[in-house]
Computed example of a mutant assay.
Amino acid sequence: MLTRLTLLLLLITQFAVAQTAPKPLRVGIAGLTHAHVNTILGRLKKGDLVLVGIAETNLDLAGRLAKQYGFDMALVYPTIDEMLTKGKPEAVLDFGAIADHVKTVRVCAPRGVHVMVEKPLATTYADAVQMAALARKHKTQLLTNYETTWYGSNHRAYAVAHTDKAIGDIRKIVVHDGHEGPKEIGCNPEFLAWLTDPVANGAGALFDFGCYGANLSTWLMQGQRPTSVRAVTQQIKPDLYPNVDDEATVLLTYPKAQAVIQASWNWPFGRKDMEVYGQTGYVNTIDGNRMRVRLKADKAERPMEAPQTEAPASDPFTYLARLLRGETKPDALTSLENNLIVVEILDAARQSAKTGKAVILK
C-alpha cells in the first residue's frame, strides 16, 4: 500500500512531467487524395499531433477514411480557409495534387501557418519561386517530405562521403526510384486521377520518382545547382498511361561530377536505392538500412548497415513537431533551398525531354 508521502511524491512527479511535456502540435490536412495521407492518419494516436481540421470536397473519400481511422467528419471542411479559421492549426500537411501545393501556401503563409507538402514541392519552377517568396515573407516553414529522408542508410552514405571523406570527391551519383506502376500496385482511384494527369502531377514517372534523385543529388552535391539537365522519357505502357511518361532518365552535369536519375513505373519491384562514386571508393545503398561499401584499400566490397536513428527523425511528422518546437535543427533534404533546386531540375528535365536538347541552367 502506498504511504501518503509516496503518493504525494508520485503526484508531484506526474504534475512536473505534465508541465514540461510539449503540447501536441495542432495540424490540419489539405486534401485526402494522396495515398500517403494514410501515414498521418494511422499515427494520430501517438499523441504528439492533434488533428484539428481537414480540407476536402470529396465527402465519400473523407467518409471512408473517417470510418477506417476514426476521425470525426465534423473536422472536414470544404476549403482550406474555413479549416484554418475554425481549426486554427499551427501547420498544414498537404496531401492533394502537386499542382495545388501553391494554392495551399497562398492561403496558409499569410496567416502564419507552416506547410509540409508531399514530394515534389511544385509542378513548375514559377510556382516554386512564388511559394518560397510567400514562406520567406511571412516567416513560415515550407517543407517537402520524401520517404528517403528518413532512411538511415542515406545519412550514413552522406557521412561516408562528406564527414569521413572516405571516398574522395564525388564523381558520379546514380539514383534508382520507382515501382511496377501506380495502377499495377493498386493505387486508389482518387490518387490515380491526378497522378496520371500531366498538369496536376507535372508529368508521370519523371516527377513522381525523378524528384527523389534530384533531392538526393542536390544534397550530396551540398546544394550545388547542376550546370545542365538532359532527360529522355518514354511511354512504355501507353494503354495504361496515355497522358504521361512512365519511364524517365535524367542526366545532371556539374563542373566535376555527374548524376544519373532513373525514375520508372516499369521496375519489376519497388526500389529506392542509390550509388555514390568518389575518386577513391564508393558507397551504395540497398534500402533504408543496408549498404555496400568499397574503399581504395579494400579487395572487395563489404556490407554495412545503418540504423534508422541516423536519420533526423523516425518519420516526417515527428520531425515537423520537433522542428516547430525548436527541439531539432533544420534538415537539408526537406528544406526549401534544396527543393527549389529540385523543381528547377524537374522543370528543365521536362523541357529537355520535350525538345530533345540539354537545358543549360543560368
Rank of each mutant, 00 (worst) to 15 (best):
A122C: 13
A122T: 08
A122K: 01
T124N: 11
D127R: 00
V129A: 13
V129L: 14
V129G: 02
V129W: 03
L134W: 09
L134A: 12
L134M: 13
H138I: 02
H138Q: 03
K139W: 08
T140A: 09
T140D: 02
T140G: 05
Q141G: 04
L143R: 07
T144C: 14
Y146Q: 09
E147W: 09
E147C: 12
T149Q: 12
T149Y: 00
W150C: 04
Y151A: 03
G152M: 01
G152F: 01
S153F: 04
H155Q: 10
R156M: 13
Y158P: 07
A159P: 00
A159M: 05
V160A: 04
A161M: 10
A161P: 02
H162K: 10
A166Y: 13
I167S: 01
G168H: 05
G168V: 06
G168I: 10
G168T: 10
D169N: 15
D169I: 06
I173W: 00
I173S: 01
I173M: 15
V174Q: 15
V175W: 15
H176V: 03
D177Q: 14
D177A: 15
D177E: 15
D177G: 10
G178L: 07
G178C: 08
P182Y: 01
E184S: 11
I185L: 00
G186R: 10
C187Q: 12
C187H: 14
C187M: 13
N188Y: 07
P189V: 13
E190L: 08
E190Q: 15
F191I: 06
F191C: 11
L192Q: 05
A193Q: 08
A193P: 00
L195P: 00
T196S: 12
A200L: 14
A203D: 11
G204E: 03
A205C: 10
L206A: 07
L206G: 04
L206M: 14
F207A: 06
F209N: 11
F209W: 12
G210M: 08
G213H: 03
G213Q: 04
A214C: 14
N215R: 05
L216F: 14
S217Y: 03
T218M: 06
M221R: 13
G223S: 10
G223Y: 11
R225F: 00
T227M: 12
T227I: 11
T227D: 08
R230S: 09
V232P: 00
V232R: 14
T233F: 04
Q234E: 14
Q235R: 15
I236V: 15
I236F: 11
K237W: 06
P238C: 07
D239F: 07
L240R: 07
Y241I: 02
Y241E: 02
N243M: 09
V244R: 07
V244F: 02
D246Q: 10
E247D: 12
E247L: 06
E247P: 00
A248N: 04
L251C: 04
L251V: 10
L252W: 00
